[in-house]
């Protein structure tokens, strides 16, 4: 494919460790192929830094195909960069122009403290999941037959759409309140929509919301930023469903 090469200026948040104070550093990077992904561009920068005997920029990444949810990055003021419905690893440099200045910052949230440079700690999500994001069924395999309970296709599809969440945290990062409700709403919805999950729906939503609050996430003010920036297009409908589930659970 016809790839061009561009020169860019990067303004990257550097922070030695959780305790240190960080700051924006400026780097010039030349000959970036427009066919490169954003993370490949960062690889290139790191190769350059290592060549100069400098410490490379630490950033989270793994699958590089938009599904593991490990990559993050707030690029030019937006979670996962300017394009929508993709993760940073799927963002390509053709979205930028020669001579552009690109700001790269970590997710910002009290519940996601910075570990180093662009890496943040997202274990708060794990703890929310541990508080109730499951169906309490043993792993014996001796449950009932998979087809014993039919599930309306519509419900199964909605459940899948909610379950498509990759837990990247873009919702928290882009929400002006640092709220995690899209993440929690999606998980609550996935189970609430299935008969297997309904049994313990009351306890689940109460526990997950309690944990969410304890982690220090902000409140939802329905701005909808999360839905726009979510790489998997998780709908706000899921937050409403959580609100509903919680209301019912609270007065039960």
């Amino acid at each position: 494919m016809a790839s061009k090469y561009i020169n860019i200026t990067l303004k990257i948040w550097r922070q030695k460790d959780a305790k240190s104070k960080g700051q924006i550093e400026t780097y010039k990077l030349d000959n970036v192929s427009t066919s490169s992904s954003f993370l490949e561009m960062l690889d290139q920068l790191n190769e350059q830094l290592v060549g100069e005997r400098k410490e490379p920029v630490a950033f989270d990444h793994d699958c590089r195909e938009g599904i593991c949810g490990m990559c993050s990055l707030y690029i030019n003021g937006r979670a996962h960069g300017p394009d929508t419905k993709i993760t940073t690893c799927q963002l390509h440099m053709r979205s930028f122009k020669d001579g552009d200045t690109i700001y790269v910052e970590p997710w910002r949230s009290k519940a996601f403290p910075v570990i180093k440079d662009l890496i943040v700690d997202r274990t708060a999500f794990d703890r929310i999941q541990q508080a109730g994001g499951f169906v309490s069924v043993n792993t014996s395999g001796r449950t009932m037959d998979a087809n014993a309970i039919p599930v309306a296709k519509h419900d199964a599809d909605r459940s899948f759409e909610a379950a498509a969440c990759i837990g990247c945290g873009a919702c928290v990062a882009s929400c002006k309140n640092g709220s995690a409700m899209l993440f929690v709403g999606a998980k609550v919805s996935q189970y609430a929509l299935l008969p297997q999950g309904k049994v313990e729906a009351t306890q689940r939503v109460l526990n997950m919301v309690r944990q969410m609050d304890e982690e220090g996430f902000g409140n939802c003010t329905n701005t909808g930023a999360c839905e726009v920036e979510c790489p998997k297009g998780i709908s706000l409908e899921n937050i409403a469903r959580m609100n509903r589930e919680y209301l019912v659970a609270s007065i039960k």
């Binding site: 303004k11 910052e105 910002r108 519940a111 640092g178 709220s179």
Partner: peptide, 11 residues
Amino acid sequence: NKKARPVGYVK
């Protein structure tokens, strides 16, 4: 909500 993001974004 302000407390939930003690450090803001530069951009």
